[in-house]
């Protein structure tokens, strides 16, 4: 079974924010809620690099582990989703998430005021696909149409890639081979050491 994944190639990310606005465009996420954002390291200094971050759809998702009302579920292809009707907006998942993915609307509510909102991998939520309810609470459902998250599809340099983990690792591996070096994803060095 395929597992849906995001991967951001820091050698290609140019901090252009297309992923952020593509998400706003697709799901009409309100002002102040960012399902995706671009994180810059060493801003303005030699070695400056950026990665685009959203919910990483963890296999053993910490958000789900700590949720007091167990509003999370995972699709068969590995997309972590949640039910806004169950969510109590407590914010516990925000503390558990290693990526800061959960968002909480302040004024104009997305769905219901104060409920947690996060990246759905453009796969909607627990409402009938393409229903007005799904659209209002979770946004569009591209995955059901055979399309991938718009942030990745619109990435300016194809830095952010999404899809079946096997396919995207294949695409990425080819790129790395072309560059003639080791993978340059962030964290690689700390995980495997300088020499790898």
């Amino acid at each position: 079974m395929a597992r849906m994944k995001f991967l951001c190639d820091a050698e290609r990310c140019i901090e252009c924010q297309a992923c952020v606005t593509a998400c706003k465009n697709e799901h009409e996420v309100p002002w102040g809620v960012n399902r995706r954002r671009v994180i810059v390291m060493n801003d303005g200094q030699p070695g400056e690099r950026a990665v685009s971050v959203a919910c990483m759809h963890c296999t053993d998702a910490p958000c789900a582990a700590v949720c007091p009302v167990d509003c999370f579920y995972t699709t068969a292809d590995g997309i972590v989703l949640h039910d806004k009707d169950l969510c109590i907006g407590c914010g516990y998942c925000f503390y558990a998430c290693p990526f800061g993915a959960p968002q909480y609307p302040e004024q104009t509510a997305f769905g219901v005021r104060g409920k947690m909102d996060k990246c759905t991998f453009c796969a909607g939520g627990p409402e009938p696909a393409h229903s007005q309810e799904e659209l209002t609470k979770y946004g569009t459902n591209r995955v059901e149409e055979g399309k991938l998250p718009l942030c990745a599809e619109m990435c300016a340099t194809k830095a952010l890639i999404a899809g079946d983990g096997d396919v995207i690792s294949d695409i990425y591996r080819k790129r790395v081979m072309q560059r003639g070096g080791r993978p340059q994803t962030w964290g690689w060095q700390s995980a495997y050491g300088e020499g790898v």
């Binding site: 079974m1 395929a2 292809d77 009707d85 627990p126 696909a129």
Partner: peptide
């Protein structure tokens, strides 16, 4: 919570090739 038809094995299987 509410059920999600598109979360099932069958649904995921059905779209897997398209997504690849």
């Amino acid at each position: 919570g509410s059920g999600d038809d598109t979360a099932s094995e069958e649904a995921a299987e059905a779209r897997a090739d398209d997504l690849r």
